[in-house]
Every structure is written in structure tokens, then in C-alpha cells.
Amino acid sequence: MSVLEAVIRSVAVVAAFLVLPLLVGQTEHKFMAHMQGRLGPMYAGGWHGWAQLIADAAKFVQKEDVIPAAADRGVFRIAPAVALIPYMAGLAFIPIGDGIVGADVPASAFAVLAALGVGILGHLMGGWASANKYSMIGAMRGAAQLVAYELPMVLAVASVALAAGTLSLSGIVEQWQPWWLLWQLPGAIVFFIAALAEINRTPFDMPIADSEIVFGAFTEYTGLRFAFFLLAEYAGIVVMALLFTVLYLGGWAGPLAASLGVVWTLLKAWIIAAIIVWMRVSWPRLREDQLHRLAWVWLIPIALFQLALTAVVVVMTR
């Protein structure tokens, strides 16, 4: 890999990282608005308010960067970056077309999971360093949630990897066949729910439950640092939607995959992202104990069942 190629790839990943979350954010604005009988942003940029989030970003940049007096300043400062960078790293390993990937590594599925697991550290750091009890509670909720849901998620991904016989996301897409939609359905459901929990989206948004603990770990954050946390959330949606697409929906498989592959991947991921937004509009928040009951009583057994089912089918068909 030449230096030039590395630079181009990095720039492409960063560009995708900056653009795709904005698309999801815009989608969220418009979808929620229409589902609730509103119009949503209409003015920024002219046509249906397409530049609303860019305008938001400009607003965030101008705001004052407040750090509480009692806070642990160093940790408080780097926490948003720690929350954001793992998602960028994760995005780099996800292929969106045949050979179109930031960094093609052999165990990319595992690499994405490893990167995502680190993300919560940013929340913990931010929550602890804010010296605010709501922030602390939010951070602890988030951490407990992540530890509980990491297991079903890894098990669900293991099932797909087992089915494809590889840990490489590109390899999984190559092996994917339409009937896996049915075969891997329990695992897909588990993955989807666990993914929602990992990125703290409704109905698993207890860590930032604004009606209970103000805004969780982000309570004390303002300006650009707060924007980074928000960006991390939308980047989380992008990464999870892309991962779901690649693992369970065959990625770029579709008509004219050779030329339209990227379009297919992005379209499928966008639909998944839209479903995640839809969940936010239509579901109430769970209680903390319900969340853990769901993980330990339902998701992990189902994921184990899916793993056993996959193993049986793989052994029988090969």
C-alpha cells in the first residue's frame, strides 16, 4: 500500500464519516416530523431544509466551550474524542462495495466489534469527569448496558461468521445467500436490538434519559464537544446500520451488483437507519431492570440458539 493510497483511503473514510451521519440526522429530522404531522426543517439551504444540520454545526462551533470548575479538565476534554474515534475506526473496516473498504483486514467483523466496544469509554470518562451526579448515573447506566449487550451482539455476529466460514465482512457478503434471511433471522433480531442498546437509542436510551437525569453523561457539555457526542450517536447509527446490512442483508448483493453495489449497500443501510428512527418515534423507554431482563433472559438464549442452529446447518450442509 503506497502512502498516497493510504492518504486517499483515510480521506475517503473521514469524508464518509462526516457525510453519512449528517444524512441520517437529516433523515431523522424529516421522518420524525412527518410521523408526528409536522414538516420539520424547511428553510436552511432552501429545498426542504437540506442544510439544517450544517447550520446546526455552525451554531455549535460558535458556542462557548464551558468546563465546570470541579471537573477533571483533561479527561473532560478528551472524552468526546474517545467517544467519536472508535466509530470512525469501525467505519473504516466496513466494506460498502466489492473491494470498496477503508482498510481491508482479515478479521474485519471482529475488528468492528472491538472498536465499538471501546466507544463507551468516552461516555464513562465524560460522565465521571463532569463532577455531576446525573452525568455519573448516565455514564454508569451506559456502561452496564454496554457490558450486558456486548455478549448477545458478539454471539449473533459469531453465528454469521460461522455460517460464512470467515471473519471478514467482505467474505461474509460473498458467501451470503438470500435464504440466510430466514436462517439467520433470530440472530438478526438479536443483533438489531443489541445494536440499538449499544448506541443508546430509544427504547434503550436510559443513559441519556432527559426526563430523568437531564442528559446523562452529556449534561455538562456545550458547543463543539457536545456536537461531537451527537455526531458519535449518529455515526453509531451509520456503523450499526451498515454492519447490519453487510452481515444480514447481503451488503451489495442485488440486481446489477457489479455496477450498483455501493448504491444497494447504502440504500439498505439507509432503510435500517430509517427503522431505527422509526423505533425512536414509536417506542417508550424501557426501565433499567427491564433492559437487563431482556438481555439475559431473551437475547442471550436466542443468540445461543441461533449459534447452535447455524452450527447444525453448517455441519449438515458441508
Binding site: 478479521a107 471482529f110 475488528a111 466489534l113 472491538a114 472498536a115 466496544g117 471501546v118 463507551i120 469509554l121 464513562l124 465521571w128 454508569m140 456502561a143 452496564a144 454496554l146 457490558v147 456486548e150 458478539v154
Partner: peptide
């Protein structure tokens, strides 16, 4: 990767907890 996933992603979270 196992180090990142298990150690950093879970063990350290527990320690901080």
C-alpha cells in the same frame, strides 16, 4: 482484537465501574 474487545471493552469497563 481479543485484547481490545475483552480487555479494553469489558474488563476495563468493569474496573472503572
Amino acid at each position: 482484537l481479543v485484547q481490545l474487545l475483552i480487555y479494553v471493552g469489558a474488563v476495563i469497563i468493569l474496573v472503572i465501574f
